[in-house]
Design a protein around this nucleic acid. Structure first.
Lengths: 155, 155
DNA sequence: CATAACCTACATCCTTAATGCATGTTTTAT
DNA sequence: ATAAAACATGCATTAAGGATGTAGGTTATG
């Protein structure tokens, strides 16, 4: 009963992008970095993760429309919409996969037709996601200054 | 993101015991079956599960004080307290293990000191369990008659 | 004392997440 | 043009942990 690292990595990537974006908007920064995009390599060195795994997560985030990716030299990716519009429930549900939290088949449970459990667990799951729906990427960036420092000091 | 089969089996076992107990209390039943205990074999044939796995779950339920087990000939087990006092949050939390739903170490996340995510997910997890705390084994036995029929017709 | 049942430890299998490798495709700078 | 930098994609491999199996131990009953 734990989120996949895959999902976890996706959230870290979004946090990284959120911090970069906020920084780029600071006065005096508009042209200094020429809006350089974040690359998979940046993420991997910052968080010390496997290139291949991050590769897949980035691709997934792209397909979900959460980030815009650009191929080719000087390519990379950035948030596709404002951090305030990226809801945590959506991100986690999509990356995690939206299966039932309890398995009634495989093996098939004879009690299934008269079982009250699956409904209770399913409702609990929805409450969990309903709670997450109150938060957006913005809420993950409260300690933005500290995050920026962490991200910029990791070589 | 799914409950372990282990946990699932534990709940099924409790449901089975709850039904047996209610049946034993029916008028005219007090002495007819001599209060025969439920055995691991009974559970395995009813739900078509592995003896060894059920073995471990039963043992665990015993250690948790949810069932009383008795060794030796004519041994077996039964609920250690009324179904209404067996809360689902407790059962699931114990059988499932109460780890955090998100992994911040292994590998260690550099953002940890400034991360808002772990708190949000932890609170969501507690809401899930808070919801489960509203229910007891009794709530899983609403369709008791149907369950009894299912359990007694599986050879 | 034999049998039926749970107890316990250890070993193995199996699923799947995690990771690695190889190659393709696109874009840009030179 | 062409080389380099970046994401895209598919397949192979490894690792972790849950699921299952084997073997014997212990306890109670008849």
């Amino acid at each position: 009963m734990q989120l996949k690292k895959y999902t976890d990595y996706g959230l870290r990537i979004l946090m990284y992008l959120g911090v970069q974006e906020a920084q780029a908007r600071k006065p005096g920064m508009e042209s200094s970095q020429q809006n350089k995009l974040t690359t998979i390599r940046d993420i991997c060195t910052t968080f010390d993760l496997s290139t291949n795994h991050v590769n897949k997560v980035v691709h997934h985030l792209g397909r979900l429309g959460l980030i815009d990716t650009r191929r080719g030299k000087n390519g990379g990716f950035l948030l596709a919409k404002p951090a305030a519009e990226i809801r945590l429930d959506y991100v986690i549900r999509q990356l995690e996969g939206d299966e039932a939290w309890i398995e009634c088949h495989n093996p098939y449970c004879v009690a299934l037709p008269a079982c009250e459990l699956k409904g209770i667990v399913a409702r609990g799951k929805e409450l969990f996601y309903d709670y997450l729906a109150q938060f957006t990427l913005t809420d993950l960036l409260k300690k933005q200054g500290q995050l920026l420092q962490i991200f910029s000091t990791t070589p």
